[in-house]
Design a protein around this nucleic acid. Structure first.
Lengths: 344, 344
DNA sequence: CTGAAAGCGCTAACAG
DNA sequence: CTGTTAGCGCTTTCAG
């Protein structure tokens, strides 16, 4: 039993055009007719078919969002912010969790395009080469679908990214200032390579040399378990190290676990710094020193940018790039507070 | 520059009907024409418009999912499972985070209906009365949209729920068996009331009496912060208690924090048990004793049920109710392992 | 096997 | 102010 604009029109004793008018609050409809139409709508519990609307209006009022994983607080909180922000603006969110896999990204993007989303928010930590991205971009251009990315830099698109080189440099530099010289790094392909670069950068600017043996790249996802494993490998390598900088907080949590199982306590025996400043970072024991990404700002800007590009001709668009500063948040795991106490 | 089935037909030198046929792999199309059509499709990078399709096929290949919050691992992991499961089946997920608010639930549901999702997965911990739910159900019935719920029990719908009375009873009973008599409960309206009932049930079956002063109901969301506050209130009340059962793990984490700040260590001075067995429960210090919800099974069943009801006439449907057993997972925070060691 | 034509439910001119 | 009508892009009879 389908209920369409036709049934409403019939019940209200008007034409479908009139019903459409009261639905869209456009051309003034005589109050009395409007009332009877509205009454019919409520009586029938009529919900206009968005798909039919879309065919004409060319807008689905939905945005597609691609995230690499849903098991990392960072992405989930971002998702949450974006979703709420969009809802306020009358949009709903279609989501795709891509597991950091390029094929899934493309597959989801295609399905988004088929659904004719109004825009795509593309979050990823995979490093993109221009060639590899051309599919996605070509597709979205083809269908005039604006896209805004978080972290991947695509010349033709609006992009937002954190200054991870700066963030990672600050984190590593902080460790160096604490007197550490043997600092390891735990990261990998699923973590922005910028963080490793920042780590190296801090060494360079301090005239120090990186011990390549202290760099552990995890193969799979940047999970707790993989952080744990990476730290174990480092421990077993026999190399000497007194501090560890981890590509993200979850990795740092796993790392701390491995360290403590090994009998080392953080930060007394070894300093650990994470990245992201996920909600649980401050709750962890020890409270994690980490690099804060301005999540709220990022989420809002993402939505702002996508909304901004909606009306416009995508081919005329001058791609904007917005970069966010990262902020080192010193807590317990790096041992800085410990040192300060000693000095006092 | 929009590219439609028309352009493809033109390029391939056939009618749009033929293009449609190769798209839907139906009536055999002569291999040679099929090839040229397929070539045209690729050349133009044609993505058929799902909205137009939907108007005829009556299926959007998308499912809407309502969750109360995205900042609790429980719902996020469930979301992740559901999303992946659906993707395998060729469906995409529209999400709505309702903040435990009834109006948002209805508003999202309406927007889902307008988009003509094929089905709705409705997760909530809000207690529903038949009257309050009638809107939502009436709406979905009206538009033949199947709905399956997680935890709310709606007579006319397929429902899945955990046996939270059993789970909470087991948890509390375990504490009682450890010798605890002064056991508090931290919960509230945004946590299934079943958990409080299970808590009470354990007291009854053990011929003990609940001290109502030890029940703390949080007003807002069941967050870390609110768990912390509830525990503080309990601490300040001056009431005596040696164990605390928390309505969910996040609440338990906050509780532990408050307890430790107060100078009590868990589990030596006080036992704490949570609920859900969220991923970080085992990583927490102390590792949290909690009640495990079979998340994987729940997610899968949710998808299974919604898929199951897709073809069928919703009005003929005999609502299924599936109940899942909860499982107590004993770790460190309840002190059981501690006692065992002492006894040895 | 393939094309022509009739809609799906709605909006947007265009008349009245 | 309101009704008629022509599509939106696609699928689906119904003929050839």
């Amino acid at each position: 039993m389908k209920i369409t604009i036709k049934e409403v029109a019939q019940l209200a004793g008007v034409s479908i055009a009139t019903v459409s008018r009261v639905l869209n609050e456009k051309n003034k409809v005589k109050p009395s007719t409007r009332d009877s139409v509205q009454q019919a709508i409520e009586q029938l519990n009529f919900q206009p078919d968005q798909n039919a609307r879309t065919m004409i209006k060319k807008s689905t009022k939905t945005i597609g969002m691609l995230v690499p994983e849903l098991t990392n607080e960072f992405w989930v909180f971002l998702l949450d912010i974006v979703q709420k922000e969009l809802w306020e603006l009358g949009y709903t969110l279609l989501i795709g969790s891509t597991d950091h896999q390029r094929e899934k990204e493309i597959a989801f993007a295609k399905s988004f395009i088929e659904k004719r989303v109004d825009g795509i928010i593309y979050g990823s930590s995979v490093i993109e080469t221009a060639k590899e991205m051309s599919d996605l971009i070509a597709l979205t251009k083809r269908y005039d679908i604006p896209i805004v990315t978080l972290d991947p830099r695509i010349p033709q698109a609006n992009c937002i990214f954190g200054d991870h080189i700066q963030g990672a440099t600050d984190a590593t530099d902080h460790l160096i200032r604490q007197g550490h010289r043997h600092i390891g790094y735990i990261g990998g392909p699923s973590v922005s390579a910028k963080r490793e670069l920042g780590y190296r950068n801090a060494f360079m600017t301090n005239d120090l040399i990186v011990n390549e043996a202290l760099i552990q790249r995890i193969e799979g996802l940047p999970t707790f378990e993989n952080g744990y494993e990476a730290a174990r490998r480092l421990l077993e390598s026999g190399e000497r190290f007194t501090a560890l900088f981890c590509g993200n907080d979850v990795l740092a949590f796993g790392t701390i676990k491995a360290l403590e199982e090994h009998g080392w306590s953080v930060p007394q025996d070894i300093a650990v710094v994470g990245y992201d400043d996920v909600h649980s970072a401050r709750l962890w024991k020890p409270a994690l020193t980490t690099v804060r990404q301005p999540l709220q700002d990022i989420g809002r800007t993402l939505v702002e940018m996508i909304m901004d590009s909606l009306g416009k001709d995508i081919h005329e668009l001058v791609p904007k790039k917005i970069i966010f500063q990262m902020q080192l948040v010193v807590r317990d795991s790096c041992g800085a507070s410990l040192r300060n106490e000693e000095q006092q």
